[in-house]
């Protein structure tokens, strides 16, 4: 009985955490000033929002059940694919010149491009 109650409490806590983080992420997408900070919020919804919900499903149903096993597979795929998707989005945005927020304090690729030896040329191998 107490084990069941503990399991239920864990499920509620995990699901609550997931929903709360998803809410802050959605709020961040609305409130953040530019694409790069919004991408940071959207990737947080997946890693800290969807994963606790899926883990809650695994805890509630058991890992080797019909729902639990699929939740584990989906969680694994999300962990692999989501950072790559955010990376590709941010890189594409930077390459196509999507502007940063006026208050941004660092633009490392631009600094690396401007500071090295020759003025117009990007740095080649030595700084990587």
């Amino acid at each position: 009985m107490s084990g069941h109650a503990a399991e239920l409490a864990a499920v509620i806590v995990l699901a609550g955490l997931g929903v709360a983080v998803s809410f802050t992420g959605a709020l961040g997408i609305l409130r953040m000033p530019d694409v790069y900070t919004r991408i940071q919020c959207s990737s947080k919804i997946i890693t800290m929002g969807a994963l606790p919900l899926l883990i809650a499903l695994v805890v509630a149903q058991g890992p080797m059940t019909t729902y639990g096993s699929r939740a584990l597979i989906v969680a694994g795929l999300l962990v692999i694919v989501n950072p790559a998707a955010s990376h590709a989005l941010a890189r594409a945005a930077y390459k196509t010149g999507v502007p940063m927020w006026r208050g941004a304090v660092a633009d490392e690729p631009r600094q690396r491009r401007n500071t090295p030896t020759e003025e117009g040329k990007p740095e080649s191998q030595e700084e990587r």
Binding site: I80, V81, P83, A84, H87, A88, R91, A92, Y94, K95, T96, G97, P109, R110, R112, R113, P122, E123
Partner: peptide
């Protein structure tokens, strides 16, 4: 194709992060 260079990206594949993940 380093990040500092301007668009368009002409490479056929994406960066190593995306390739490994895919």
């Amino acid at each position: 194709d380093p990040l500092g260079q301007p668009a368009p990206e002409r490479a056929a594949g994406m960066t190593v992060i995306v390739r490994v993940a895919a």
